[in-house]
Design a protein around this nucleic acid. Sequence first.
DNA 1: ACAAGTGGATACCATCACTATCTATAGTAG
DNA 2: CTACTATAGATAGTGATGGTATCCACTTGT
Lengths: 222, 222
Amino acid sequence: MRIAELSRTSGISIPTIKYYLREGLLPSGENTAPNQAKYDQQHLDRLSLIRALRDGAGLSISTIKRVLVTMDDYQPGQTPLHLSIAIRELGEPLTIPEDEVDAYQRAEVELNTLTEDLGWKVDLDSPGHDDAVRALVTIHRHLPGLITDSKQLHPFAQAVRQLAESEIPDSFNPAVDPEAVLHFSVLGTVLFEPIILALRKLAHVDRIRSTAAANRKPTPSP
Amino acid sequence: MRIAELSRTSGISIPTIKYYLREGLLPSGENTAPNQAKYDQQHLDRLSLIRALRDGAGLSISTIKRVLVTMDDYQPGQTPLHLSIAIRELGEPLTIPEDEVDAYQRAEVELNTLTEDLGWKVDLDSPGHDDAVRALVTIHRHLPGLITDSKQLHPFAQAVRQLAESEIPDSFNPAVDPEAVLHFSVLGTVLFEPIILALRKLAHVDRIRSTAAANRKPTPSP
DNA sequence: ACAAGTGGATACCATCACTATCTATAGTAG
DNA sequence: CTACTATAGATAGTGATGGTATCCACTTGT
């Protein structure tokens, strides 16, 4: 198909498609002449993936590019590691301002303690590691004293682990069609994020209403 | 204190402070002359809150403004409702493109079914409602057929509820210093979001490594 | 008296994610 | 063949965002 059809089918304007081509998010079509190229289903799929990453978690074009490049690196036979690497690219790489090295170091130690206490098999290269460190630093900066001991995070982290268990059942086996798993995992990681955050807010509301109702009855005369 | 000290203490440049003043995020200082004003601890607190909302969840200036304006509306005695309203402002208001009305309607029905099934006491005005609808629409668009029945989300939603329970203990009582609760709730909602998402990724890694290890042993000869 | 600091207004700037235009050429209907 | 539209690739422009920078007529501190 030619670019006009690609645009019509995907619902993305031609200038935008050209922009994605320039930025290296979309591979060029196969040239049939210096100013003619043909595109196929792969290009449609790629455009759909780009939009999903953008709409789902509002990823920037440069982050999407990193993810896609890593996904394209995939060679059959290297699944579990590669899957991690691709998902790690969803976060921004950690850059530590020189005047805050120790804040980051403390956060990193805190995170290591937490994951070791819980027995999680993760390491510094795992996706989420850098994001967690960054988030801990931000919390300590803006709510200092809230977390004085990483043990305080245990119930919280265990609840998040429950969440992960509900997403990845015991039967999960990445050996089945690794490429599909890669695609689905990246997309699932991103598309469920907003749902989690939204449901969390709803659960908070329910929780506050429930505890308020429960607290009202036992203490009718304060 | 004067603006130079406000800037030094908060670590935010004078032009940026003036920008926040212009945008209505920061109230003006008390004028002592046509070109002199004095600022106090409230302004420092406000600047810190602005940065927390920005750094924590990357909220836009306009969203932060909406949140702050709502928080400022607070009148003693109206806590639980007001708390909800302030937190609802953390999300973008829902605007439905006219050509997708039914996709949004279906998502809304799906969400209502889910919360009713689970017995959550929430309504259309609850914080998270609009975000959840938006997120469901995005999932259906990019992974059509993944969720055919809202019951599929039950384990997932229950896990999120566990999370909320770990954050809001049974003893939670908003009657104690409502203003502090408001401040803390808004900040907590935002600052824990990146931690949740990061820990989720780490939990995924652990889960995949664990299930991979478990699956390897029972099937030594495929 | 005078340098340094201030509030308020306005202009400017860099980044981001597109969007538009231009040119030389290719496909295509009559 | 002609006339027309479509195309690749290059370059330039746009609107929104989140600040910076400059200017002015003043105060303030010394």
